[in-house]
Structures are given as C-alpha cells and as structure tokens.
Simulated scan of single mutants.
Amino acid sequence: MAQSSRLRALQHKNADDVVVTMAIRSPLCKAKKGGFRDMRSDELLTEMFRQAIKHSGINSEIIEDICVGTVLPKGSTYEARSAALAAGIPESVPIQTINRFCSSGLVAVTTIASEIRAGQIDVGLAVGVESMSWNPDVGPDAASDEIKACGPAADSLQPMGWTSENVAREFSVSREDMDEFAARSFQRAEAADKAGYFAKEIVPFTAYQKDTATGARKRVTISKDDGIRYGTTKDTLLKVKSAFPQWPPSRTTGGNASQITDGAAAVLLMTRRKADELGLRVLAKYANVAISEDVDLFEINEAFASMYVHCVRKLGLDPEKVNVNGGAIAFGARQIATGLNELERRGGKVLVTSMCMGTGMGAAALFLGEFQ
C-alpha cells in the first residue's frame, strides 16, 4: 500500500525533530522468583542508569533532564536521585519521577519529548523501572466517605482485576477467546526468544542474588528474560482456575493476565540537530499523529487478555501487526525498546505503542522508524 501524504509529511526531517537515539531494556524477570528477586528497587534503577550511560554514546553531563516512570517505591524521587548519582550522573543533571501506573514509562518518554519540543532542553533521558519483588502493590488506602458516595470516584479505586472482568462481561469476551490470545502471546514470545530477536534490545544486568547456603549476596549477570512459559497452549491455560471468583464472570486467570515482573528500560531523546552534532544514530522520530492504515506494528500492553481482545476487535486491528513477539502476558512491559527493535528487523516505518492504566485512563505514542 502506498504511503499516505500525511505519513510522508510526518517523515520529513527537521533539525527540531524529537528523535530517539537509544532504546534499551533489562531482562524482565519474575517477581519473587526470577533473576532480580533479591535486588532492591534502587539497585535495579542504579544498574539501569549505568547501562544507559554505557550505551548512550554521550557524556552524561549533557543530559539536561531525566524523567523516571515508577509506581511502587514509597520514596520514588529519593530513589531516582540517589541512583543517578551512584551511577555516576553529575549532580548538575536534574531528575523527576512520574506515576501514571502501567503507562509510567511511556509518559516519562512523552514528558522528555515535550520538554525537547518546547525548547526547554535538547537532550533528555526517560526511564521506566519497577521491582514488584521489593515493592509489592498493596492497593489504595481506605477512601473517605465523600469518595465512597461518588460512583465514578469509588470505581476509580477498584483493582484492575475487577476492571478486566467488567470488560469481559460488557463486551462479551469469552474465556476461550482470552486463553487463545494468551497462548498466542506466550508462543510468539517463545519463538522470538529462540530466534534471538530480544538480544539486541536487552542489555545484560549485574544483579545481586542470595546464596542459598550462606545467605550472603553475590553478583551475577542476567541477560535473558525468565518469565516466558515455553510450551504454553490454549488447552493448558483453560485448566487454570479463575483469579477473581468474587467478580463474575470470573474469566481472568494467572495464565491470561500479565505476570508480576521486575525490570527496567531507558530511552534517550534529543533534537535531530543535537544527534547530528554528536554523530549519533537515529532510531526513530517521536510523533503524535498518524493514519491508522500506515501503522506497521502495534505494541499494546497486555495487562489482561480481556482488554487486548476487545481493543483488537473494536479498533479492527490486524492481529499479525499487534504484539508480534508476545507481550506482558508473556513477560511484562518494555514496549518501546521491543517495538523499535522489531520495526527495524522488519524494515517498517510506523510503531504505535499504547498502555492501559489504573483509575480508568490510558496512554499512547507514535514513533517513525529511521534507523540511520
């Protein structure tokens, strides 16, 4: 299909374009059981900063702002600032944190891109990080009587499992459809892992693990995701019990919802002018509009299969373009690094990444691949 005039206009290169010059991620590991189970969240973030500096191709002194998307740490800005300093980023580089639940990492990228587009900075680093081992999600505190009396306000405090069941019921998403999709997510992730597709986006992480004999912590290198369940089929998933029997129709299970995960990702953004000045390879241009038929790949956060199935149906998306290497059901969210890596491998041009989040919100972003 010929590219639309709108897409050709978006692809026009200007010195003030916001571009991505690095998109990397850690391995994604099962919380409580995986490779990062004994690693503090501030240690995970410190290592992500170290790897970002190592792979950025720049002196960290020229970074003008850092935005860290993270949800669970109680002192997130303290963790972010101290981790940056411990990783060797100068005191002169400011940092901020943002919490928008599942989309926090994506919104961190959008925040940095907006600062660059507004002319506030030329170079910025966006990071997403979460350790569900170290900071388990305990949910909201008890609500006030005023909030309880307001239907939408009270609903916004409900857990996402409740939302998943509502979606399944209201939009007639069957358990069979959910498990069929979930199985495909695992199978795609397994195939991509075996083919080595993730190797380019994953940077090996130095982690700490406890010695089972002595209890002492030792340093190990983690270089692969450990949450992909090889050999998963629809039939095996249909045997898994409901995770939320208290909320009819109770179709969500531990097999068709995202696992709890420890991991991190980093994206370096700057003006095209600055990338050219520094001699850096441009991976993609950050944009905010597109024509749907021009999209080569979609990365949708698979928090729950009910949501994914409904989105694909409602939007009329081609399943062969959506989460082609699996998604959060298989191993967690890391969508920009994975999406751009696969876009380059396919020789594609347009990536759309979107994420649901708690409290009834969502977020999306568009990237135009260049891979100079």
Score class of each variant (00 low, 15 high):
L45V: 10
E47W: 04
T77C: 12
P73V: 07
I58H: 05
I62Q: 13
G69F: 05
K54I: 09
V71F: 02
G69R: 02
T70G: 08
N59S: 12
H55R: 14
K74T: 12
K54D: 01
V71D: 03
I53W: 02
T77W: 05
S76P: 09
N59Y: 08
V71Y: 01
F49W: 12
L44F: 10
R50M: 08
P73I: 03
G75S: 14
L72C: 13
L45W: 00
Y78T: 15
T70S: 15
V68D: 02
I63R: 02
I63S: 00
L72F: 08
R50N: 08
E43A: 12
K74E: 10
Q51I: 09
I53R: 01
L72E: 02
K74N: 09
K54Q: 11
G75Q: 13
S56G: 03
I66W: 02
T46Y: 04
T46M: 06
L45I: 11
K54C: 03
I58M: 07
T77F: 03
L72Q: 01
E43S: 06
V71T: 12
N59Q: 14
E43Q: 15
I58L: 09
G75Y: 14
M48A: 10
V68C: 03
K54M: 12
T77L: 15
I66T: 06
I58V: 14
E47M: 13
L44A: 06
H55N: 13
L44S: 11
K74W: 04
L45H: 03
E61A: 15
R50Y: 02
F49V: 01
G69A: 11
G69P: 09
H55W: 12
E61D: 10
T77A: 13
K74H: 10
Q51A: 12
S76H: 07
E79V: 13
D65K: 00
V68R: 05
E79G: 04
H55P: 00
I53Y: 01
I53E: 00
P73R: 13
I62N: 04
I63T: 00
N59T: 14
I58C: 01
D65V: 08
I53Q: 04
L44Y: 09
Y78E: 04
I53T: 07
S76Y: 04
H55V: 07
F49H: 09
S56A: 13
S60Y: 01
I62F: 04
I63C: 01
E47S: 08
I62D: 00
P73E: 09
T70V: 10
K74R: 13
A52T: 04
Q51P: 05
S76V: 14
T46S: 12
